[in-house]
Nucleic acid binder design. Structure first.
Lengths: 146, 146
DNA sequence: ACATATCCGAGTAAAATTGTCAATTTTATA
DNA sequence: TATAAAATTGACAATTTTACTCGGATATGT
């Protein structure tokens, strides 16, 4: 069970926007360089993020992207839902007919419990939480750099 | 973010073994029929489960598979670890050098929190829990069948 | 005008997924 | 002892997904 790069890159990119929230737009090029991600690939991700309403774009020179909402109102679940799709622990829920009746209920309940638990975590963590963690770490390592 | 069929099929198969725990061995053919899974595909999964020590095989006629440990001592995490591999939310943890320093700490902490939370759920759910859920549902639906 | 951006759709190589299959070995039982 | 049931192993293959790459169009601050 793993996360694809879409979710990872997406969170990293959104984290960059969160750091600059309130300031000037951040371009894909900047993010791609800072996070070491393919510029063209990021374009696609931002296309999805924009259509989902998580970011706003400013076209033309000096343009870029900004968060549509403050970082504390954007959850990791929001980002994952757009870029990774919903958590599909099992298709048992949508394709009930394929399941033999004998196991249907027991395993379905398990998948439901697992996906609910995962969603709880993702829903309760916001971009602001990630920024706060980052700031705390910056504070702790202050003066320890070479 | 989704689970592959390996994990799903594996849990379903192990659930069948849990139901028969203490009784006669269950063959791959039986499980494949009851759970509507490819017999040949299940072979591969059981090969992994056996090598990991989760099940024991009895070869020859009337043979099959049995759980190596009682159902309450086998967690969903045990099964997933064998069939899906460990939860890799990010390779940031193993390949630290690829991360630009500026984001390294913040997103790594996030991936760590997420994977820990998921592992907590999977570690705390045993095959016996799934069997209990199944029995409870059987109880509730008693007499309601057509 | 021009450089800097987003926007959009198409294509693509590599990897992972989800199987299938054939041949062999083991063993309970008739 | 012969037979059938069943695990064991390793190879192969179709399909899908992933992770990009690219070309051009459109928009806009300077």
């Amino acid at each position: 069970m793993k996360l694809s790069t879409r979710g990872r890159y997406g969170v990293k990119a959104m984290f960059e926007l969160a750091l600059h929230h309130g300031g000037t737009p951040v371009s894909i090029k900047e993010i791609a360089e800072r996070q070491n991600i393919s510029e063209y690939y990021l374009e696609q991700l931002f296309s999805n993020l924009r259509k989902a309403g998580l970011v706003k774009s400013i076209r033309g020179a000096q343009g870029g992207y900004v968060l549509s909402r403050p970082p504390e109102e954007i959850t990791i679940a929001d980002i994952f839902n757009v870029l990774e799709g919903p958590i599909e622990v099992s298709d048992c829920i949508t394709q009930e007919m394929n399941c033999s009746r004998i196991n249907y209920c027991a395993t379905r309940l398990l998948w439901l419990k697992i996906s609910n638990s995962i969603n709880d975590i993702l829903n309760s963590t916001t971009l602001q939480d990630v920024v706060n963690d980052y700031n705390n770490l910056q504070e702790k390592t202050k003066g320890k750099e070479e």
